[in-house]
Amino acid sequence: MTQGRVIGTDTVEDARQRGRLIVEVMPGDIVTALARESAERLGLKLVDGPVEMPAPVRTDGATSMRRTLYRRAPKWQAPSRSPRKARRLGKLALIGAGGVGGNIAHLTSRADMAEEIVLIDIAPGMAAATALDLNHTSGITGAAGRCIGGETLDLVSGAEVIVVTAGRARSPGMTRADLIDVNARVIRQAGEAIRSEAPNAVVIVVTNPLDEMTTEMLRVTGFPRERVLGMAGTLDSSRFRNALAMMAGVSPADVDAITLGSHGEEMAPIPSRATIKGRPLNVFLSEEQVKACVKDAITGGGQVVALKKSGSATIAPAHATIELIDHMRGARTGPVPVSVMLNGEYGIDDVVLGVPAHLGQGGMIKIEELRLTEAETAALHTAADAIRTRLAT
């Protein structure tokens, strides 16, 4: 009789990284409580084994040859992969029903990502009107989730995920840091309501200045760092990928790139990790062109503000927030840039900064430390120092 193994969180994490949906538990195996909790959070099932494997499909030589020749035909296209089965949220609350919040609600409702979507805004009637407008689309989209709008923060009660977009937007000539004092008051009010009404929620902060407001949300709620996230890196990375694609004349789908650091002047696009069609940037672009793309990513938000004259970007930030929620639902896998409190990662302590992290049902699972160049590592530390300075003033 073989001795059973101990199934811990490392076994569950290994299964997730391999893209498996089940963890086989053989007779005699011991499953730790933490492993069960991790499996539930990641959407994996613990299945009693041995699991019966399907019999291999046997194909005769003539059929195999015919299929091989067919795949070599110029018109053949590989079948698209079926999307991952994502978990549906119970209740999603949006504090702020303006441009960003309204677009997040629209995208969430359209994809039927939550059973209930609650919009909250201090402007009389705004949240209720948006909610009603979205409910009117259900006859077209067939979405089953219902939207509710109101003006009081107690509506966050019982929310699984809370997105905070409320606060003053930038005007031309303003930096994100100029909004610290006015928006900190908004975050404090929201954080106090979240702490009392939704103590188990995961909070995503979108309000600018992003890293500083995420720090304030952590302080007010007292939540662990895993459950207070800042949306920035997904948006900044999208802008960086768009700039690289335009410069190289390729589709954005051909570009893989990430941006870390702060959501502001100290933003740190990472060219050393970026690829175009799976190859390094220098195959397609000169050093000067890459620098231009880095600058375009850093100034992307300001470009929108300058064109709008009043207000800032709303559509791209909404899509960037949905990307984080999709990682939490299991619709996407792998590391994603997100602002979190660092505890020694990348040699940085006690500051919120954008880094790649794995997300799950309970928020952040772990931070992934990438191998960066000396200049890129220095940029991260410069961003950390700048955030500390702004918070100290």
Rank of each mutant, 00 (worst) to 15 (best):
V228P: 01
L359P: 03
L307C: 03
R41N: 12
R332V: 05
G90F: 07
R110M: 13
I148D: 03
L324Q: 07
A245G: 13
R329Q: 14
I117V: 13
E24K: 00
L155E: 01
R279F: 04
R16H: 09
G149F: 04
L46H: 02
K291Q: 15
G102C: 11
P271E: 02
P252T: 10
A378M: 12
V31N: 05
E265Y: 06
V206I: 00
H381T: 11
A268Y: 02
V305L: 06
Q189N: 06
P199E: 04
V51E: 02
M217L: 02
V118Y: 03
A375T: 11
V255D: 12
T314E: 15
I7V: 12
M1E: 08
I387S: 13
D60V: 09
V355N: 04
G125M: 03
E212M: 11
S238R: 14
S262G: 15
I194T: 01
G61N: 09
R18P: 00
A93C: 10
G149Q: 02
M267T: 14
I322Y: 05
G230A: 07
G102V: 08
S196Q: 10
P199F: 06
N343W: 04
P50C: 13
E374Q: 15
A248Q: 14
R371Q: 13
G222C: 07
L372F: 11
R87E: 09
V25F: 05
M26L: 15
R72D: 14
L260G: 08
P269F: 14
Q189P: 00
S82C: 01
A232H: 10
R273G: 10
G4K: 02
K277D: 06
K309Q: 12
I95S: 04
V57N: 03
R227Y: 01
V305C: 08
E52M: 11
V186N: 02
V294T: 08
V203T: 09
E216T: 08
A357N: 09
D14M: 11
T9I: 14
L260M: 15
G145F: 07
G301T: 00
A144P: 00
S196K: 11
V202Y: 10
D181I: 00
G311E: 05
R87I: 06
M364K: 13
P356S: 12
A297K: 04
G150H: 04
R225H: 10
V205E: 02
G233E: 03
L34E: 11
A384G: 15
D296Y: 05
L218Y: 08
V351T: 13
A232T: 12
A274P: 03
E266W: 10
R81Y: 02
D29G: 10
V156H: 01
M26E: 10
M246L: 15
R168K: 04
K85M: 14
K85H: 12
E216I: 13
L89W: 05
M341D: 07
G301Y: 00
A123N: 09
A129K: 09
M126E: 08
V206R: 00
L285R: 12
L42D: 13
T2F: 07
A232C: 15
L285E: 12
S64V: 14
R227H: 01
D14A: 15
L179Q: 02
E151I: 05
G101K: 02
P252W: 07
I387T: 14
V57S: 11
I122E: 12
